[in-house]
Design a protein around this nucleic acid. Structure first.
Length: 367
RNA sequence: GUCCAUGUAGUGUAGUGGUUAGCAUAGGGGACUGUGGAUCCCCUGGCUCGGGUUCAAAUCCCGGCUUGGACC
């Protein structure tokens, strides 16, 4: 049993527990920064560790292209290569392979795509992706899924659901690595019946955890949360649940209340690079002139390196000069903000008052 | 003092008689959610001044002023 729930909230479906993997024991709920190519954008692995990151997600298909499987075999595994002691999830590439710029063809066999590095043609099947992730030796492997963007026809989502279910079964068959957990993924766009069908099928397979995918891609927040509900309804409560790609503070807090245990997203770091800092009162834009002579911290009680040392005026100054280093400071704050928020949520779940914490947070967090 | 040159958003510039006066940057606002981004979108803001020529002037002419240069 890789996942144990230690405490359930009385008034919501929130819970806290532990995910045990080969390299880590991770308290849930938790957030994973995205470490696509072996390093985060503007953050080193050492910096992530100091921000209390216990686990991150990497991208298996980009690692397959560079540095390549042969090199990863030579270094024993990916953990060794990058020298990371914590947990690593690897995304299958389902998300990236859909990028129209690289995608050549998709059918039931798999996906043909072009390398973004040099245009070479490559093929990925559900089986091949599992073997690839085995070679990477990540703690948690994700199945190859068929993901559709928002605003496609229902027929497109239906095809994607059927294909994802088929690929899930094929992935299970070839996954033999006992040291690596395997998560299935629920698709279905914003449609209740498709989410239900996909969730039931994926839930019936012997996966170590269930992910909800295909969201936060342009649909409304309301539809996104409905789709999460439609999916969660048909997944066993005892299983660990991972909401893929969702990373805004308000979405995370709401999803924790629904019983989601795990998140990943580029949102905090991308926001930081684009000048947005998270605070408990809502996001602020450091480019605004009102910060020019504001000598307060981003957040008084934040323990991140940025808030411990620097003022808004300093960040404003650096951002206006387009100094790359400011993106490091701001990324550190946003990642730490999300971690602290979830750390507090875990504490509140343990104390039995997550619901009021959630209500207060959403009330104060002005979007 | 004389002669020559110069003057277009805050800044740097394009524009040889008919342009909604273009671009960049600065300024204001917005977007971003399993990362090719150091990204994208929107808004504000301008012809040095006064005459004249012309149906029509940022554009041509005269004068003032600005700034730069040359010569006394």
């Amino acid at each position: 049993m890789c996942f144990t729930i230690s405490k359930k909230d009385k008034n919501t479906l929130a819970r806290t527990g532990v995910l045990k993997t080969k390299h880590a024991e991770i308290k849930t709920p938790f957030f994973m920064p995205v470490v696509t190519k072996g390093i985060a954008k503007y953050l080193t692995l050492d910096q992530l560790e100091k921000l209390n990151t216990k686990c991150f997600i990497s991208n298996s298909y980009l690692l397959y292209l560079k540095p390549g499987e042969d090199l990863l075999k030579k270094t024993k595994d990916y953990h060794n290569f990058i020298n990371w002691k914590g947990g690593i999830f690897t995304d299958s590439g389902g998300f990236q392979l859909k990028n129209p710029e690289f995608m050549i063809k998709i059918n039931n066999k798999g996906v043909w795509f072009r390398s973004p590095f040099n245009g070479d043609k490559h093929f990925m099947s559900p089986e091949r992706v599992i073997k690839l992730q085995n070679n990477i030796s990540s703690d948690v492997a994700m199945i190859l899924d068929d993901m559709q963007d928002a605003h496609k026809t229902k027929k497109d989502y239906e095809i994607a659901v059927n294909r994802t279910i088929d690929w899930a079964k094929r992935a299970i068959k070839v996954h033999k690595n006992k040291d690596q957990l395997l998560f299935g993924i629920v698709q279905g766009g914003i449609y209740k019946d498709l989410r239900e069908k996909c969730a039931k099928e994926i839930n019936s397979l012997p996966f170590d955890g269930i992910a909800i995918g295909g969201l936060a891609l342009g649909e409304s927040k309301e539809n996104m949360h409905k789709a999460i509900d439609y999916s969660l309804e048909h997944i066993d409560r005892g299983k660990i649940k991972y909401l893929m790609g969702v990373g805004s503070p308000e979405d995370i807090i709401q999803a924790i209340g629904k019983g989601v245990d795990c998140f990943d997203s580029i949102y905090p770091t991308k926001m930081a690079r684009h000048g947005i800092l998270f605070t408990r009162k809502g996001p602020i834009n450091i480019k605004k002139a009102i910060y020019k002579e504001n000598f307060e911290k981003v957040e008084k009680d934040c323990d991140c390196p940025c808030c411990k040392k620097h003022t808004l005026a300093y960040l404003y100054h650096l951002y206006r000069l387009n100094e790359p280093g400011v993106k490091i400071l701001m990324s550190m704050h946003n990642i730490r903000f999300i971690h602290r928020l979830i750390e507090e949520a875990r504490k509140k779940i343990k104390e039995g008052n997550f619901e009021s914490f959630q209500i207060d947070f959403l009330k104060n967090y002005k979007i």
